[in-house]
Computed example of a mutant assay.
Amino acid sequence: MALNICALNICAGRLPGERTGSLVIAALVGLALLVAAPIGASAQQSAPQEGVQLGEDVFSDVQKEAIGEVIRDYLIANPQLMLEVMDALDAYESIAEREQQRVIINANRDALERDGVSYVAGNPEGSITVIEFFDYRCPYCKQTADDMQKLIETTDDVRLVLKELPILGPDSTVASQAAIAAVPQGKYLPFHFALLRSEGKLDREKVMEIAEDVGLDVDRLARDMESARVEAIIDNNRALAREVGVRGTPAFIIGDELVPGAAPLEALEARIEAVRDAS
């Protein structure tokens, strides 16, 4: 099933398939040794045991060729084995990646939850923190806007940390700059939801029109948008997203788990409830 997420091309390192491919090769080597064991055992039994040292090649060229033929014939006769190996390796890799991601999230907990600059909706003193990375032009972020508003209106222990992550071009950056610059004027949240609910092109002119509609001082907003502080917040959000493995918008972090894509409200609430139960 496709994930409702706007892709973010900031991830470094190998593609998932490259690592899986390497693991498949390792699995085949293991299979080779398993199938070859009886042959190897015969070779060792026929050879003086005191002459066999760890690391020596105990198989002759003829035996190696025979082993290769056995494995080739076995795989041809049982092609489904490769699918089973791939599935098992994918599952193993997913578990390992999730665990590594938990470690990284916990290592960046303060930057994620309490950086001192991100707007916190809901209950700022709430015991459960939900972090959302979003882009105002992302259609899937727009899709989740009503759910996010409902979440903060119907829960009294959730603090929603909103992190602008403009990834869809210059207009996205302008919208994020304006939203961050609106915080000192005390109009962030209505401006935030108005931007997300806007339809059509979201260029600078439209952003300023929305800002005026929600009661912002647009002249002050225009000046504040160009500040080094606003630029630093966006740069830091991008670096943090890269660090914790966010690959697109929207992306949510609840507890020590990253929830990518436009997850339904029920799924987010279930994760929140799990965090409540664990605390």
Rank of each mutant, 00 (worst) to 15 (best):
V275T: 07
A7T: 08
G122C: 04
K187P: 00
D73P: 00
E18H: 11
G30K: 11
A27C: 11
G248E: 02
V120A: 03
A12Q: 14
A239R: 15
M148Y: 07
E269W: 03
N237T: 08
V85K: 02
A88L: 13
I95D: 08
A178Q: 04
R98M: 07
L195I: 11
R102F: 00
K150D: 12
R98V: 00
L23S: 05
D256S: 14
L112D: 01
I39H: 00
A222P: 02
L221E: 01
G68D: 10
A91F: 11
A175V: 09
D61C: 05
L165M: 13
F133I: 01
R223K: 09
E209G: 12
L28D: 02
L31W: 04
Q53A: 13
T249S: 08
A179W: 05
L165E: 01
E97C: 03
L89D: 03
E69V: 08
E113A: 07
T144I: 10
I105F: 07
G68L: 12
Y74W: 14
P38M: 12
I128H: 04
E97A: 12
N123W: 04
D61H: 03
M208Q: 11
N237Q: 08
I152E: 02
L112P: 00
F191L: 03
F133G: 03
E99D: 09
A41P: 04
S127L: 09
A194Y: 08
V117G: 03
E93Q: 15
D213F: 09
D217L: 08
P250F: 02
L165V: 06
E205I: 09
S60N: 11
Q49V: 10
F193H: 13
